[in-house]
Write a protein that binds this DNA or RNA. Structure first.
Length: 423
RNA sequence: GGAGAGUUGUCCGAGUGGUUGAAGGAGCACGCCUGGAAAGUGUGUAUAUGGGAAACUGUAUCGGGGGUUCGAAUCCCCCACUCUCCGCCA
């Protein structure tokens, strides 16, 4: 959620930045400023009434204390009218605030100055590429065939147990998951991230904190009986660890990592790229999250990009890093880099990570703050990224490294997996 | 799932309707004392938000939400969490 002070300071810049996102209602900005003005006026009226009511109540208290009952009764009558008036004004105020809040929630984050203009993924900027695409034989198999060939995942039984998109990993397939998770977590903790293993269901307040509610309600599995949501990413519980906290400046930056399964309904995204592991309802992911002071967040973003990039180099996968254009960025992000790996048999780029700076958009909702040197309390910046999402990594590893003898795993995984080749 | 006890400021802890934003203590900050420190002593010490150049000041906040009342930390209702006992159970 944007801070209203940002709108007050420079409404024209806000509109210009929203334009980069192709935000359809620039008029909202002026409406919000008008609301803001009205609210402050109405607050003045309401609070003045409340103040006089409070002071009369105090007087009554003093009179009662002195035993002057009659005088107190007289005051009580005086107050009756005031109370009615106050109730009416307070209603007006809460109506104004309600409108204001629902309008403010509709505003996405403002794109950083380096965000390119554009409407679709085709407008994203390729920042850099790395690794080399393998030369596969013409009869190279897509990963869903390789999965069958080496008996790594049983999609059919997963469907029987739950439904489509819930893979059942098996044997070497299950072990490969475990190896990757362990490797990613070790890599993250050795870079100073503290490991967490959070709850996989969260309550409404938590889902609201990171912006899943009210915006993406339909994307989460909802346990209505208890009012819980299955997490779509570790970002949700882990960032909320610091909700309503004031972090000591000396404890910054806060660096956290977590492995969790992620649950996504993926409502409305049926279509071409749902085969095999390209898009599933439950998948494993390791996430990194940082809370930093505002002046350092873009340096931190660059560090996180390098961190994820190095991980892909360890995996020896061909990758590219994209800077998302205004039209393709998520609602809450100010700047996002997407990482894609090339899955050679499908001849497709698959998104495996998304590293973003949210500035104060999330922390404003969650009231995650820190105390500055001078003693002033300020919102922190929050950032996060995947390191990494497993299914598409597995897809690319299988496809790119297939040989007649088996799947050759990258060096970095050998000790974790216990073998160099899946046969 | 059933029964009971509890949730107060950075922490401990008092407070069952009226100048209570909240006693007392600890901690912390600054001063005095000291050769220096400890002890002692004095003062200060929540957050958010509105108004104001500032001094200052209005409002809200005693787990969360609602209610009663002129007035609620205090009374009533609902919810969450913690602890104890019973039941069930990996």
């Amino acid at each position: 959620m944007l801070q209203i002070t940002t709108l007050r300071q420079d409404p024209e810049r806000v509109k210009e930045r929203l334009g980069l996102r192709n935000f359809p209602q620039p008029g909202l900005v002026d409406e919000l400023l008008q609301d803001d003005e009205n609210i402050r006026l109405q607050k003045g009226i309401t609070e003045k009434l409340q103040a006089s009511l409070n002071s009369i109540s105090k007087e009554i208290g003093m009179l009662m204390g002195k035993g002057e009952k009659a005088a107190a009764e007289a005051k009580k009558e005086e107050v009756a009218g005031l109370k009615k008036e106050l109730a009416a004004e307070a209603d007006k105020l809460s109506l104004l605030e309600h409108t204001f809040n629902s309008r403010l929630l509709q505003l996405p984050n403002l794109p950083h100055q380096s965000v390119p203009a554009g409407k679709t993924p085709a407008d994203n900027q390729v920042v850099r590429e790395g690794g080399t695409k393998p030369d596969l034989a013409s009869d190279a198999l897509p990963h869903w065939e390789l999965i069958k060939k080496y008996n790594l995942i049983d999609f059919e039984t997963g469907s029987k147990l739950t439904g489509s998109g819930f893979p059942l990993y098996k044997g070497k397939g299950a072990k490969l998951q475990r190896s990757l998770i362990q490797f990613f977590l070790d890599y993250n903790t050795s870079a100073g991230y503290t490991e967490y293993l959070p709850p996989l269901m969260v309550n409404e307040a938590t889902a609201y904190g990171t912006g899943q509610l009210p915006d993406k309600e339909g994307q989460m599995y909802h346990i209505t009986e208890d009012g819980f949501y299955m997490i779509p990413t570790a970002e949700v519980p882990v960032t909320n660890i610091f909700r309503d906290e004031i972090v000591k400046a000396t404890d910054l930056p806060v660096k956290m990592t977590a492995y969790t399964p992620c649950f996504r309904r993926e409502a409305g995204s049926f279509g071409a790229d749902v085969r095999g592991l390209n898009r599933v309802h439950q998948f494993d992911k390791v996430e990194i999250i940082q809370l930093t002071e505002p002046s350092l967040s873009y340096i931190t973003l660059d560090e996180m990009v390098l961190h994820v990039e190095r991980l892909l180099q360890f995996l020896e996968l061909p990758y590219r890093i994209l800077r998302l254009c205004g039209g393709d960025m998520g609602f809450t992000s100010a700047l996002t880099y997407d990482f894609e790996v090339y899955s050679a048999a499908q001849q497709k780029w698959l998104e495996v990570s998304s590293v973003s700076n949210f500035e104060t958009f999330q922390t404003n909702r969650m009231k995650i703050r820190y105390k500055e040197e001078g003693g002033k309390t300020q919102l922190l910046h929050s950032l996060n990224g995947s390191s990494l999402a497993l299914p598409r990594i597995v897809a690319a590893l299988l496809e790119n490294n297939q040989t007649a003898e088996g799947i050759n795993l990258p060096q970095a995984l050998h000790t974790y997996f216990g073998e160099a080749t899946i046969k």
